[in-house]
């Protein structure tokens, strides 16, 4: 069971990264972005393609995948979000669903609808840490997450980071102080896409991956994580992701392994999401609207 818990933390970290991107975009541009998972899928496929077709080192392919995700974020911002910004939020939501479907279709065209394998950044046998078996790749994941957390904490202390927080509190007032709203919107989408890309690159080596895998397997838990965090809190969204990952793995252990309930993982996530929405719609860490 201990191993299930630890694996849950790693799985949850991926949900958390995706959830932070969801909340960032939601807070900053009031868009619920269904394409958030596809930033991760596209990053994974670009990295995979670079490793397959070129001789670049892993790190370069990894960064290439991240940059592809950021480029996709900027493209979505320019081509979909900005032209539709005056439209209703529902239309924008549907538009992001369209973006996700388009991205999946394009990856199918480019890479065939087949399961692929992305090797981990560091290979090696599992080692035992505090009674749980952990892969070297997972240690690297922890280091990467700590770096991201420190980077984000630092970013939100800069003028630009403060502006990102400010626009979620009062977009008109950010224009009053002379901040370029288009620039801010780009920063937010680029950052969210980068986080989504990282989530995809961490998730892909866990097993096999197919076009649209992030949308299919991680978007819903990430949404649950964002709701747990109240859709407003970035640390809350990340913590929510970890909580979902742990709960999901406990569900797999208790319901699946012990009681042989089918679909234990999905059952746990849905159950948790429903419970939070019913009991505390403002989220566990969120403020009442």
């Amino acid at each position: 069971m201990w191993t299930f818990l630890v694996q849950g933390v790693f799985q949850g970290a991926v949900y958390g990264l995706l959830a932070v991107g969801l909340v960032l975009v939601y807070k900053g541009t009031r868009v619920f972005n269904f394409a958030q998972g596809e930033f991760g899928s596209v990053a994974a496929f670009v990295t995979w393609g670079l490793l397959l077709h070129t001789a670049v080192p892993y790190l370069v392919a990894f960064v290439g995948g991240l940059l592809a995700a950021v480029a996709m974020g900027l493209l979505v911002e320019r081509a979909v979000v900005r032209p539709l910004f005056a439209a209703s939020r529902l239309i924008l939501l549907v538009a992001t669903v369209g973006v996700a479907l388009l991205a999946i279709a394009l990856t199918v065209l480019a890479a065939q609808p087949q399961a692929r394998v992305l090797p981990p950044a560091v290979a090696g046998e599992p080692i035992t840490v505090a009674g749980a078996s952990v892969l070297p790749q997972q240690i690297l994941v922890l280091v990467a997450l700590a770096a991201v957390a420190a980077g984000l904490a630092g970013f939100f202390r800069t003028d630009l980071g403060l502006a990102v927080l400010a626009v979620s509190q009062d977009p008109v007032a950010t224009r009053v102080v002379g901040i370029n709203p288009v620039m801010l919107s780009r920063v937010i989408w680029g950052l969210a896409a980068g986080l989504g890309g990282l989530a995809g690159l961490l998730q892909a080596p866990v097993g096999i991956f197919t076009p649209g895998f992030m949308t299919a397997t991680t978007l819903l838990p990430a949404f649950a994580a964002a709701v747990l965090g109240g859709m407003t809190s970035l640390p809350g969204a990340f913590a929510g992701g970890v909580a979902i990952g742990v709960a999901q793995n406990l569900g797999i252990y208790l319901l699946g392994q012990q009681l042989a309930v089918p679909g234990a993982a999905e059952l746990t996530v849905f159950g948790l999401l429903l419970a939070v929405l019913l009991v505390r719609p403002q989220g566990l860490l969120g403020k009442a609207a």
Partner: peptide, 20 residues
């Protein structure tokens, strides 16, 4: 229209945005 969830100091800092 102050930024409610930012501190007083951060609000003033953002006021200086054009010449930060």
């Amino acid at each position: 229209r102050v930024f409610p969830a930012l501190t007083v100091a951060q609000n003033l800092r953002l006021g200086a945005w054009p010449r930060r």
